[in-house]
Simulated scan of single mutants.
Amino acid sequence: MNLMQDAPNVVSEEGLRALLAEGHSADVVCRVTPKRTSAQWSGVWTVHCVSPDGETRRLLVTARNNMAAREFKTINGLSSFLAGLDVSIISIPMVEGKVASHKPGDTD
């Protein structure tokens, strides 16, 4: 059974990298408005892969056999993940429900 085929609205990290190389974007969605604790901001963000035409959205999941949404709980973790996708300018939504779109190599 191919879970990625059976659940077309999700994507693994490997699949996300492949789709980004084809022109898709990575949307960061703020699920819980972050709060500052000492020098760290903590909240909940998820990443969605969006097709170039905006018609298809896929939620980044932790693993093919688990299929749980990959959640980022700190800005440091989220920015490190995005930098690893070759995103050069990172925008992080700081209010629940807000979205920021990213493409690898964008410089403006």
Rank of each mutant, 00 (worst) to 15 (best):
A26N: 02
K103R: 15
G54N: 09
T56W: 08
L20S: 02
V99H: 07
V87E: 05
H102L: 08
T33A: 02
M1T: 13
N9Q: 10
E96K: 15
L60P: 02
S80R: 14
V87W: 07
A68R: 15
A26K: 04
V11T: 13
K103D: 04
A83S: 14
G43H: 03
F81S: 01
P104T: 05
M1C: 06
A69D: 14
A18M: 06
S88Y: 09
V61M: 04
G84H: 13
V28Q: 01
D108A: 05
P52K: 07
I75S: 04
G23K: 10
S91C: 11
T107S: 14
D106E: 14
F81R: 06
T56I: 12
E22V: 06
V28P: 01
S79V: 15
T74F: 09
A69W: 13
E22D: 13
T62E: 13
N76M: 14
V32N: 03
G23Y: 07
V44Y: 00
A100I: 11
M1V: 15
H102D: 01
E96F: 15
A69F: 12
V99F: 09
K98G: 03
G105H: 14
Q5I: 09
S79H: 11
W41G: 01
H48G: 00
S25E: 04
S101R: 13
K103H: 12
A21M: 05
V29Q: 02
R64I: 10
A63S: 12
T46I: 13
L19I: 00
A26P: 02
M67H: 08
K35C: 05
L85A: 00
V29R: 03
F81L: 10
D108C: 06
K103S: 04
T74S: 09
Q40M: 04
L85R: 04
T37H: 02
M4D: 11
I92C: 01
M1H: 14
E14V: 09
R31T: 00
A83M: 12
H24R: 03
Q5R: 14
T62K: 12
D106I: 08
K103C: 07
G23N: 05
S25Q: 06
S12Y: 11
A100M: 12
